[in-house]
Amino acid sequence: MNGMVSRVEPPSGVRRNGPAPFWRVVRSELGWVLRRPRNLLALFGLAMLPVLIGTVLTLTDSAGSGPSLFAAMAGNGLVLPVFSLMMTQNLLLPLVTAMVAADALAGESAHGTLRGLLLAPVGRVRLVTVKAIGVASMIVLAVGVITLSGVLTGLTVVGGDGLVTLSGTTLPLGPALGRVALAAGWCAVQMAAVGAVALAVSAATEHPLLVMAVTVGGLIVFGVLEAFPNLEWLKPVMLTTDWYSISDVLSDPIRSQDLLTGLWRACCYILIGFSAATARMATKDT
């Protein structure tokens, strides 16, 4: 029924009684997210990164030294996507996430368009949900683009069919791709946690730049705090604590303990961030 009606609807801007169909609002939000050139550029840049790493690795043949996992990557292409995710989730992915979250509420606020949304026949919780879905989609796209580019580059440039795990076992292509997908999913949940907090900040301010500064600055502060042995007790509540555990998917059997702890922690952050964003939006005056 709704679908039929929406086709003969008058153009947007005309008030209607009753809420707008949810999927339509989501679609329009996704359209906005994907139409922004900066977002597309970010996706393109992220896609290039694994290609760059893979090419440098094959050309220089620098296996045996360098950061963790680097040694495991020689001739073992499917390590590349996991390595790329590990490298980007520290700063680049949070940056992209914060950028989209900043546009979502603070950006609208800065342009004065948030007012229109608050007056529109969309509930406040719905509004936050739609914005969160927009941010989440961008995260999934970003992580997906890195993973896909990593897998393709790994298989074509670095080489190797299947995956030699860190434990020395050899996985055939299917399960190996499963491991990569697992890493990607885990990474996406971590980024969703960053996105939820960024969204909460975004709801509280009207300066998009502030959202990025707070989000990325917060992650850097976590990194600094981790370096102090005296602040060991803070570690369990810091989002970044288990981020390096993403390489645990490359063990056989998977070393699941830290991954699960990290997952639980990220879910807590998502709950906090989303709730805070909702609370702020619900109490906002139009």
């Binding site: 406040r124 509540v237 879910c267 807590c268 952050y269 709950l271 906090i272 709730s275 609370a279 619900a282």
Partner: peptide
């Protein structure tokens, strides 16, 4: 209605914080 939303959301924040502290205990 907004107040009840805000209250529910605050409960959500509290639950999340509790979940985090459960990791530290």
């Amino acid at each position: 209605r907004r107040r009840s939303i805000a209250l529910t959301a605050s409960a959500g924040i509290a639950a999340g914080a509790l979940g985090l502290t459960s990791l530290a205990l």
